[in-house]
Design a protein around this nucleic acid. Sequence first.
DNA 1: GTCATAATATGATGATCATCATATTTTTGA
DNA 2: TCAAAAATATGATGATCATCATATTATGAC
Lengths: 196, 196
Amino acid sequence: MTRTPGSKKAETHAGIVKTAARALRRSGAAGVAVADVMQQAGLTHGGFYAHFASRDAMLAEAAEQAAGESLASLTRAVERRPHPQTPLQALVQAYLSERHLQTPDRGCLLAAMGTDLQRASPALRQVATAQIRQMLETVRAQLPPGDRAERDAAAVMTLSAMVGAMVIARAVDDDAFAAQVLADTRERLAANAAPP
Amino acid sequence: MTRTPGSKKAETHAGIVKTAARALRRSGAAGVAVADVMQQAGLTHGGFYAHFASRDAMLAEAAEQAAGESLASLTRAVERRPHPQTPLQALVQAYLSERHLQTPDRGCLLAAMGTDLQRASPALRQVATAQIRQMLETVRAQLPPGDRAERDAAAVMTLSAMVGAMVIARAVDDDAFAAQVLADTRERLAANAAPP
DNA sequence: GTCATAATATGATGATCATCATATTTTTGA
DNA sequence: TCAAAAATATGATGATCATCATATTATGAC
């Protein structure tokens, strides 16, 4: 009835979701093929519907996994920041880094497939909405003090700029231009955060 | 040999491109089907390859059309701004408007399918890169004076925030939240632009 | 070790889609 | 008006893909 102890199914399921979370960021929502994900997870396509009600359901789980991973990675970057850096600087630098630019499949879901969400299934959008709220909360927690509305607005603007800059940097076919977009946005966000 | 005067082919071609420019923003790069575009343009699918070497080639032309349309619309908004508004305010308000939120197929290409570009054909990326440079130039032209590097950086940050905010606002499944994201970003960008 | 059952694999099925070959219609120059 | 050329339509073809039906294999209780 409930899950037998020692059952392997949950592990297999989690493996598929992890694989799908990478695929979703590498290929976008429309680019994820059920059979490909199963193969990359070391399985064949047939067992898929023993794990998910539909491809959409898998994508929703994958999105949650992906967003969780990248939020954890940002939090880690803030915790392990080198001494002179403020928490906000650490967060912004980690997000707008060369490393993040080059590894979409390990990074932020929004930067990888954010524009697919406006066309996505309700389940996927719901997951994404919750994750966006969490990201905003994480950014807000690093901001200097101020009244509530002001901090909220600053968090929204900061997250928007981070996401937009990464979308643009990944879109262009000129590496130097991409690097400049990231550098300029990092610099201006830092300037905003610390007005001396 | 060259185009006969009075030939209708160029008009038909332009019509297909215009239709495709809408479809590209409505459905994303992966969602545009050749036969659908042709039908929406009032034609059948068979003639397609008399107009384009491939689907990719059509998408590249469509992207150029789309970006041109939306840049023109932004420029118009700046020119026709009501009196007390600065040019930058007019631009930001037009971009981060409820109207733009609701009509992706008439708006900014980046907000509609920006995250597809990292996976797009070289031809499409090249068009997109050129259009991003033009958008940056347009933003820069509205900024208050300052040295060159400073204005460039401010333009990059402003465009990034505009694009990111629209991507986020369209992604979420909560209208009030979406409106708040736009409002907060508008407010903070205005504050940045006019530091008294 | 054996058997019931859970988990996974094999192998369709029908739909969608880009592309192309060929036929038909429209246009144009005389 | 009429035929050559241009433009568009009709109708494959083969590929990809989500989903499902059925067969096979692995697992754990006894």
